[in-house]
Design a binder for these strands. Structure first.
Lengths: 227, 227
DNA sequence: AATATTTTTTAGTTGGGTCTAAAAAAATAA
DNA sequence: TTATTTTTTTAGACCCAACTAAAAAATATT
């Protein structure tokens, strides 16, 4: 019954797990714990164990019990496809529909599961092949390659350096709304005037305005490029 | 636990049933049979019985066993919301993404379940408040009113009358592709030159070209307005 | 090294939405 | 009006994806 060319299809739930395992794997190559996955999927660890076994059977993850999980090449390809769709839809929502950057995540979580290759390629063209989403995150190519942008965390910038805000490392609505309130948006020119040893907060001038304080917690989640 | 203001949410499957019951109810007020629903939902009659009981419990349909089903006002409101989303997304797919009218149905079947009121209102504005979808079907208003367009079936037009093609009563891809092949698209000027008694086919001149034959089966599914 | 704690897995349920097979009701034909 | 056929419903089962409670493994502590 099963053919070499069988086109295995992915359920909504499976796609979510693969996407979350991908997110948790970015930037290192340790295996991911069951609990970590449970937290992001908003499910219980027991449910995760079940699903990991199923994903492993389908060849999308490597999973040994008690040892954690990581994506197989096939699983990573699926995950990158979901992330590509998610980010392209976010661009659409902001650029064409007029949403703010803090409003698009939930809607894109739904749109990322729409299944149509031709739609996503046409959408890409319609948006003029954006390289990044509204939060500065790179959009994987249709061949499943995630561009590496190599940005730095604002929290790692030394005093007296200048940089440009290129992205955020977190897209919760409250965080983004705070940035907006502080005049921190993509492309903003930042000048780190001082790093305060006491609480690791920094004094930053935004677009040449008088410097304001930015907490370490916020700075950690802001991505910049030195200028 | 349950509040007067509880916002009951609809599953994918429930939305499909409500939409299909709506489709089957258009134009008359007889109750719909279990089998009719089963055919369109691509499920078995037994599954339909189950679901109708559930929909009735939630107050979205009136259902007495063995007596058929019809939408309640609440159910009709939900159904019209789905149809509205389906048709707006179809306009988007054709007008903005460059799909042909025979390619959009399946994708819109997925997009119609995306849940975001603000998205659909923004989409409506982005598309400049279209009145009809790419097949000429009216788009329900956001208040849940289905505009009545009052078109005639081409099969009912008398010889020697002129009319304009305003819509189609069927959106299967093969049917739409045939129309395209015959140069029959929305807005085409039609002149019914003859009605052939033998097979009820008609001879029609399209945009002043020499007349061609159109079968009764095709003519039945073409909607026109006399000029 | 032995014990306590945390993490993960197993076992057994549940709910949603489907199915098949068989029974019951309604519609049709004799 | 009775018998036959068709339609619909019931009963019992399955799969998916979640859950809780309890057991087992891994990790941390004394």
């Amino acid at each position: 019954m099963s053919s070499k060319f069988a086109q295995m299809s992915t359920s909504f739930a499976e796609e979510n797990y693969l996407k979350i395992i991908y997110r948790l794997s970015e930037g290192h190559d340790d295996d991911i714990s069951t609990n970590a996955v449970a937290e992001l999927t908003q499910t219980k660890a027991a449910s995760v164990t079940d699903m990991l076994r199923k994903l492993a059977e389908k060849g999308w993850v490597h999973y040994q019990k008690y040892q954690g999980v990581r994506l197989s090449p096939a699983g990573e390809k699926i995950a990158l496809g979901i992330v590509r769709k998610h980010r392209l839809w976010e661009v659409f929502l902001v650029e064409k529909m007029g949403f703010n950057w803090d409003e698009v995540h939930e809607i894109a979580e739904q749109l990322e599961h729409i299944e149509s290759d031709s739609l996503i390629e046409k959408l890409d063209a319609f948006l003029e092949f954006p390289k990044t989403d509204p939060h500065g995150d790179p959009i994987p190519t249709k061949n499943g390659v995630m561009p590496e942008l190599g940005y730095l965390h604002l929290s790692d910038i030394k005093a007296n350096k200048r940089c440009v805000l290129m992205g955020v490392a977190k897209d919760s609505a409250v965080f983004l709304q705070l940035l907006t309130k502080m005049q921190l948006s993509l492309g903003a020119a930042l000048h780190v005037e001082e790093v305060n040893a006491f609480d690791r907060s920094i004094s930053v001038s935004i677009d040449n305005a008088p410097a304001v304080f930015i907490s370490h917690e916020v700075a950690k989640n802001i991505l910049v490029k030195l200028t």
